[in-house]
Nucleic acid binder design. Structure first.
Length: 692
DNA sequence: CCCTGCGCTTTTTTT
DNA sequence: AAGCGCAGGG
């Protein structure tokens, strides 16, 4: 196969798409291309890490001092590009990266005083609309024009505020990283040229999930050398909600008429009955590239479908079974924890499973979930570091200005903010004048000054100590421990919070260990872009642990034994897509991704009943279960029942009408005890060894 | 200014 | 069930 020119690898699940890229990288290097001339883009940092390792492994021992090929995510790539050229756009060279929760804070602020009534537009909705505009390259000034209806009109106004605020904080959100890079390439051809000539080969994994800006960045970078290799599967496009557009991969040939197209249709991953279920399921999607996936691995059992009473029993049964399989005497059939993955649709689902796994003392890793960096205490520490790195970061500054409480109350902050807004200056720059202006009480202004000096002191000391010690000292000085004692009563609670702070400090240490030039900026950047990157630790744990993750994060991975849990209408397909009816196909692809993760065995579970806001609610088995078995008629009925149920539950305000309609919808549905195939393994039996 | 407790809302996926 | 905003007492 030639290594030059545009190439599209269109391939189904389990055919070794990523391997194609990995081998290609190794082959390019072998044929004499210098590593630094190759750029590969993956969807997640984890995928990048794995690809880097495998490529190096394929090459055997490399001479010392030679850098590995550049493999990164789009976002990480854009950060590097922007750091090199940001001044051209008039941006600061050092900028903070705002994650979802920072964005929400900004959005809340942007909506304040704009909203007519409280529930016309929630911060989350605003962010969604803004993200949509950004992925189309629509700026705040143009948003008013394109805005459709009151809601979007409101959003347009808020968008302008949001963006101004973001800039004032010296920050970018995730969309900005891509958008600004695109803008840079557009307005500054010399920057584009510089970036495009850094590499001779560009390889993109999971191309079906590229959004507009990513697509255009790829074009800009590959335009000169034309050595572009993209790999993807339209059936696995699951990021439409984030602006990903399948047409990018489907129209690849239009952009690159001389492109070679390779189809891979041999599935090396799943045993044939599993693959058959996957094929039957995905065939229900309307518009798709016909692909026939041929099983390479024969034998094996069809997917099992188990019905459980509720989510607690679901977790118990699944974990009990996993434990049982791990305890077998015969080593050849005994499961290792790392052979098993539990996949789910939403981030609240793992709760029950975590509880049960801990009780059964089965090691596990919960992937993603953002749980770590979302913890209050971690965010607080992070906020301190961010303010020290960049005092303009107002979201972080406001977070810590009075945490732990130091006598700078809401009133004081409000006055400071008002002055800052009046002068059009970041809040931080107002602080020195706090004592001068007569608006603020004496005591308060002294405290503000104390806080400012504290931050300044640490800013001055920044380079002097290793980061780890620096952070430790900071926590000590600030006496965060006292804050914990104050807020949390239960001793176990305090311990847990301290533990996560310790874990956070460890991640700083690990970052320092693995980077040549460890800087606070660098650490913050990593933290923002990749969630948890304490890789050494993680790698070790992953080898001996059951994996818990969302279907979205499972993309690209494979496991001998897979459990897809919560296979219910409202969860998969998610209630939201059932109600707007539009994105059911994407939910189906999501289910398809899940099924095709399994190598040897696949178990699908669903519950009769599930807790929602503290109340149990009856559940309908997912239509996808029936579709998988070719029972299209029953699937359609489940879909109808589901639509009726959620349409009624969702729309009208509480009170009588809704509560009366709910049971009615349920009674008319084809629900009842839906038996799927062989009798499910009795939960009681599966549960037997659970407690000891 | 700080803390507590009550009531109200919450309904997806992620770099 | 849990997090947030708000009112009211120290």
């Amino acid at each position: 196969m030639t290594l030059q020119g545009p190439l599209l690898v269109l391939a189904g699940a389990g055919t070794g798409k990523t391997r194609v890229i990995t081998y290609r990288i190794a082959e390019l290097i072998r044929r004499g291309t210098v590593q630094e001339r190759i750029l590969a883009v993956t969807f997640t940092n984890k995928a990048a890490r794995e690809m880097r390792e495998r490529a190096l492994h394929l090459l055997g021992k490399r001479p010392k001092g030679v850098k590995p090929p550049e493999i990164s995510t789009f976002h990480a790539l854009c950060v590097r590009v922007l750091r090199r050229h940001a001044e051209r756009l008039g941006y600061p060279k050092e900028f903070a990266i705002y994650d979802r929760s920072d964005q929400e804070t900004l959005a809340r602020g942007a909506l304040r005083d704009i909203r007519v009534s409280a529930d016309t537009l929630r911060p989350g909705d605003l962010l969604h609309i803004i993200s949509g505009w950004k992925s189309q390259g629509i700026r705040p000034s143009e948003a008013e024009r394109v805005a459709n209806g009151d809601r979007e009109g409101l959003a347009a106004a808020a968008y302008a505020r949001y963006q101004t605020q973001l800039r004032a904080c010296g920050s970018m959100d995730f969309d900005d990283l891509l958008l600004s890079t695109e803008e840079l390439f557009d307005k500054h051809p010399e920057a584009r040229f510089a970036e495009a000539t850094r590499f001779d080969h560009l390889l993109i994994d999971e191309y079906q999930d590229t959004n507009g800006p990513q697509y255009r960045i790829v074009k800009a970078l590959a335009h000169r050398h034309r050595n572009l290799c993209v790999v993807g599967d339209d059936d696995q496009s699951i990021y439409g909600w984030r602006g990903a557009d399948v047409s990018h991969i489907l129209n690849f040939q239009k952009d690159w008429p001389d492109a070679k197209i390779v189809r891979l249709e041999d599935n090396y991953r799943s045993k044939s009955p599993i693959l058959e279920a996957a094929n039957t399921l995905i065939a229900h999607n309307g518009s798709r590239h016909q692909k026939i996936l041929r099983p390479f691995r024969e034998g094996g059992l069809p997917p099992r479908m188990l019905r459980m009473e509720n989510e607690t029993l679901e977790a118990e049964a699944v974990i009990a079974e996993i434990r049982q399989r791990m305890e077998g005497v015969d080593e050849s059939v005994r499961w290792r924890p790392s052979d098993v993955a539990i996949l789910f649709r939403t981030n609240e689902q793992p709760r029950a499973f975590e509880l049960e796994l801990r009780r059964a003392r089965v090691p596990y890793v919960l992937v993603g979930g953002m749980s770590f960096y979302d913890r209050k205490e971690v965010r607080d520490v992070l906020a301190y570091l961010r303010v020290i790195a960049n005092p303009s970061d107002e979201v972080s500054l406001l977070r810590i200005i009075n945490t732990p409480a130091r006598g700078i109350g809401a009133g004081t902050v409000e006055i400071l903010m008002r002055v800052a807004v009046q002068r059009g200056v970041p809040l931080w720059q107002i602080l020195p004048e706090a004592s001068a202006s007569g608006d603020i009480p004496h005591v308060a202004s002294e405290r503000v000054e104390g806080f400012r000096k504290l931050v300044e002191k640490f800013r001055a000391e920044l380079g002097a100590l290793p980061l780890f010690e620096f952070a430790q000292g900071l926590l000590q000085t600030v006496d965060y421990r006292a804050e914990l004692d104050r807020v949390y009563k239960a001793p176990g609670d305090i311990e847990a919070r301290l533990a996560s702070i310790q874990e956070f400090l460890n991640s700083i240490a690990l970052y320092e260990q693995r980077s040549e030039h460890a800087t606070l900026q660098g650490f913050l950047e990593e933290a923002a872009l990749s969630g948890r990157e304490d890789q050494k630790d993680d790698d070790k744990r992953e080898r001996h642990a059951v994996t818990l993750m969302t279907l979205h994060s499972a993309k690209g991975l494979e496991f001998p034994h897979v459990y897809m849990v919560g296979m219910e209408e409202g969860l998969l397909p998610h209630q939201r897509s059932v109600v707007d009816g539009k994105s059911i196909d994407e939910e189906r692809r999501l289910a398809y991704v899940g099924v095709t993760r399994a190598q040897d065995s696949l178990t699908l579970t669903f519950c009769k009943e599930r807790m929602k806001w503290g109340k149990p609610r009856a559940q309908i088995p997912s239509r996808f279960l029936m579709e998988m078995r070719g029972e299209t008629d029953r699937a359609r009925k489940a879909a109808e029942a589901s639509l009726q149920m959620f349409r009624n539950v969702d729309k009208p305000a509480p009170s009588e009408s809704a509560s009366r309609k709910k049971p009615a919808a349920r009674a008319s549905s084809s629900n009842g005890p839906v038996k799927l195939g062989k009798k499910p393994v009795a939960t009681a039996a599966a549960r037997k060894p659970a407690r000891g």
